[in-house]
Amino acid sequence: MDAIVAQIHDLAKSADEATRMEIQRALRQVQQEYQGPKEILMDFANSALIMPIIRIGIDINLFRTLASSTEPLTVHRLAETTHASAELLERILRYLASNNVIKEVECNKYQACNLTFVFASEKGEAMICHGFDFHAPILRTMPEYFKETSYQNITSTKYLPFHKSFNTDLSCFDWLVQHPEHFVPFQKTMTSIEGSEWTEGFELLDTEAKKIPSTPAGPSERVFFVDVGGGHGHQSVLLGQKYPNILGRLVLQDLPTTVKDLQIEGVSIQAHNFFEKQPVQDAKFYYLRRIMHDWPDQDATKILQNIAAVMAYDSRILIDDAVLPNTGAVWQETMADLALMASCGGMERTTRQWEYLADSAGLKVEQIHSYVASTYTAVVVLALK
């Protein structure tokens, strides 16, 4: 058995991200095949408990305390630091160690392991808080919601499990803005998944960006890149760092509350609601990162139509999102699909569904630039028909 485990470790060390995902999927399948019914049921029962216990650990700074220590800590030492009772803490620590979240060194003595550092990070804390505080209440209402709605697919944002859970008539995003205790972890979670990896090997963008002169942009010069719904501009900043010559030709758009007092050198800041007419005419690229999967087809079509109405013949819409395979999608993306549906009415789409959406807005899918194979993340390039 040890030899088999060692072989798996060696294979994983040299594997790329897609292969590592395949290894995880295979291990998960093997585990389930050799579990009995009782073990399977216990695993699912445990999945309901692990997140609230980790949430408690975050509240008492347990993971940060362990991660910052160079030596194992006793239960009593941790109790002094976290201000939790030693009796309660002993039970929590024992449970977390049994789930490999922390390491049990000896009786009543613990230290950090790889997972501990994940939950001690700002990204890890934000994702757990957002998942438990915001998504978990929504997911708990889903059985009752779908029974109430006769198990129909969600195609509108007017009434969702989100509304039922938080007893509100506001949209998901309007509600988040009014509840900073939820909005802050949400923003941190979204920021943590920003990156410039989408530009790697993307010849269309690279070719066009290199055509732009390094001289300052003229007052009537064409806008090169519009970051639609771009939040605080992380993507615009990264793009400007990669192609400094396009600075002064970038526009960041988001709601007034998001871009208020925001200043980014080389980037024009513009308050804009993408359900209204697009104010930037004839830009080369209109970029939407993790926007379209937040909306059902009816709303997504309107977003695209507002952009299509101002596009030049050589303008392109770049949709940075997941493109699911028709079969065999990984659980992370199917989970995201259902969570988006319940919280904001959104969906993850297959190639066929992206083509349908584009057609409904008078556009066509010209290219799909895949850049993270393991999660099907890609840039869907749309052009006028």
Rank of each mutant, 00 (worst) to 15 (best):
N114C: 11
A3S: 15
V259L: 03
E197I: 03
F225R: 07
K147W: 15
F275P: 02
P180M: 05
I60Y: 15
Q187A: 09
I317S: 10
A136Y: 14
E106D: 13
I303H: 07
F173V: 12
R352D: 04
R55Q: 08
Q7S: 14
G266C: 04
V177T: 14
G201I: 13
H83V: 08
Y356A: 12
M190C: 10
D297K: 01
T191R: 04
E265F: 07
K38N: 03
V365W: 04
R316V: 03
S85W: 08
S156R: 07
S98N: 15
E265Y: 10
G195M: 07
L176V: 10
T334K: 06
E33G: 02
H83M: 11
V380Q: 01
L89R: 02
L384D: 06
F44E: 12
L238H: 04
Q187H: 01
I23R: 06
V228Q: 08
I264R: 00
K103Q: 12
D254F: 07
V323G: 00
N326L: 09
G266H: 05
V228H: 12
V30G: 03
V280D: 08
M21H: 12
V381D: 04
F183N: 13
K158Y: 10
H135N: 10
Q263T: 15
W175Y: 11
R25W: 08
Q241H: 07
G328M: 00
A84M: 13
